[in-house]
Design a protein around this nucleic acid. Structure first.
Lengths: 338, 338
DNA sequence: GTCTGGCACTCGCACACGCAGAGTGCCAGG
DNA sequence: CCTGGCACTCTGCGTGTGCGAGTGCCAGAC
């Protein structure tokens, strides 16, 4: 077990390194933090921390930098979440309040997060699978062609074309529309399949084919996981990454373009609060030199999607976690209101 | 006026520089292109080209690189558009054919363009202002709250909440829906305002307020220029930009995040064919070291939106122009079919 | 007139060298 | 267990030098 002072040393190293981006040595440490001991003592502590794998030196006779494991300890034990100041909160709120629709909410959230954290922001659209149906609309485009429009409680709209096996009359259409809505409106997506199962039976034989087609299209839309979309922003902040540029940011940019990767990344974080994944804790190789700070957000009490930021492992964890948490909270409020 | 051979020299310089990314000297030129003259002669030609401002040397006694003006001449006079090969065309087509909805078409187009050109791809969503209305749907969410859904011929769906000044009955709603659609379905957006102008008069006094509100919301949606969206991709290709990294790509990334900037950029290109804007021809400062190759595309004969790529001024113009043109053509086809 | 070969010149780049500064590990003493 | 001291090891930086690529110009050939 590490002594109290060694933990303090680790914390000081992380803080200094995050601030200066340069390996920190024993002398600088004692000067900037009043640890009450001499550099030599700190050196011993550092040697111990290095043995345990919390810090490392890039080259012999250079200062130390934290390892992923060191950051992990720092995040878990040594640092809290830095809450936003009152002016910051007000700024967040007023920035988000101007949004006119869901796209706009997401877009503003991305910009906001990117600006606050000066990192790359990722915001997942409120997920279909966990939200509820507000309305299902059916439009007749041609005798045997319908358009299915699904509206969710988060304001998201999905539409699909449906080619009917047989022409479908206006009255049947109105009937189906009414029945469908009375059953599924306000219900959770996951409940929909069982709720509409027996619906075709209520129709004439000639219409059943079409009804079934409509229903299966609806179900497809609901479960279509890969339709989960997200928006990213603040990629210009990657240029702040470090000095050894191209090699580091290339894979990051590539990973960011693979939405599947990002969705998986966000999805893996099961923690109800703010989740931090540091360096190699991220499964994707291109993100091995980054940390991902994410959190769920939702319109009601429950989380329906994730948002977060991607930045260098050398980041201001307390500040970033505070910003991410605050933004998630306010986005939730905005979504609940609309 | 420049002699024929001098133009050939310029062309050779551009081609070599694009290939090698290094300043090209007189000796290398005569070796790689059979110009039929000696290096000394080429040197004289190069001096002339430099006097005219088509090429420049980064440092005394280094080779020459083309200037923006040089690239301009190259694009205008010296190079054609390199058509795609048959296999490439097939690949484009089959890649785009799998798309399920408009978002997917745009997303696939972006990926495709980025891969083909190895540059940053930008695709504007089919613009509202030039397309036609397929259907307008009105849903009652609460006694005095409606949702307006607008579906365009390009498959785009826009929705807006409408708060009514007074409760609005189901029958009035059905009436309004029917009247609205009979007037505007299939019409161009620009014609809609005059077509619905007198619509409130057909309703009872108590409903007129709501009808007017709905109409103004509809018109707002139609003209809302800033709702023009676009998708970008292939930003990882920026890492191929050059050696002097951060300084160059930082402003480019920033410009790419400003959708307004990009939309203006695409909008400025009035040419019906492929438009190329080189270096300082781009108004935005951050893009002064990039070239933008863009073209309009559309579902019918007419262009409804733009797409293009952003890359270093040192790019393969014929190939890029070919790829952009080909992709635009096939996207147009796909949109027309759906 | 135009092209060519030759020649002297200019730079940028890569490499070696040396030096200062920061940081370390270790040890003996408080 | 902490501290001061000491010898050692690196990195980074500035300087100097040689090499090679490329240029401009000029006199002569076609």
């Amino acid at each position: 077990m590490l002594s109290e002072r060694r933990l303090k040393v680790l914390r000081a190293i992380v803080q200094d390194y995050v601030g200066t981006e340069e390996p920190v040595g024993s002398k600088a440490l004692t000067e900037r933090h009043n640890l009450g001991v001499s550099p030599a003592t700190v050196r011993n502590d550092m040697a111990a921390l290095e043995d345990e794998g919390f810090i490392a030196q890039p080259h012999t006779s250079a200062g130390r930098i934290p390892t992923d494991k060191g950051y992990r300890l720092f995040v878990d034990k040594l640092a809290g979440v830095k809450p936003m100041t009152a002016p910051e909160r007000r700024a967040i709120q007023s920035f988000l309040e101007g949004a006119v629709d869901l796209d706009d909410v997401v877009a503003r959230t991305v910009r906001l997060l990117a600006q606050l954290t000066r990192q790359v922001a990722v915001v997942q659209y409120p997920s279909l699978t966990r939200s509820t149906v507000r309305h299902v609309e059916l439009l007749s485009l041609a005798p045997a062609r319908l358009m299915l429009v699904l509206i969710t409680d988060t304001g998201r709209v999905e539409q699909r074309m449906v080619d009917c096996p047989a022409p479908f009359g206006e009255s049947s259409l109105a009937d189906l529309r009414a029945r469908l809505n009375s059953r599924v409106a306000g219900r959770r997506f996951s409940d929909v399949p069982s709720l509409v199962e027996d619906l075709p039976e209520a129709f004439e034989a000639e219409d059943r084919g079409t009804v079934s087609t409509v229903l299966s299209t609806l179900l497809e839309t609901l479960v279509e996981e890969n339709e989960e979309r997200l928006m990213i922003g603040g990629t210009a902040n990657l240029t702040r990454f470090g000095h050894d540029f191209p090699l580091v940011i290339r894979p990051v940019l590539e990973a960011l373009e693979e939405q599947v990767v990002l969705l998986k990344l966000l999805g893996e974080a099961k923690d109800p609060g703010v989740t931090v994944r540091i360096g190699h804790e991220n499964a994707h190789e291109g993100l091995n030199s980054t940390s991902v700070v994410s959190v769920g957000y939702g319109s009601g009490g429950e989380a329906v999607a994730k948002l977060g930021v991607v930045g260098p492992t050398r980041m201001d964890y307390p500040g970033t976690m505070g910003a991410v948490r605050a933004v998630a909270r306010y986005v939730g409020q905005i979504l609940a209101e609309s």
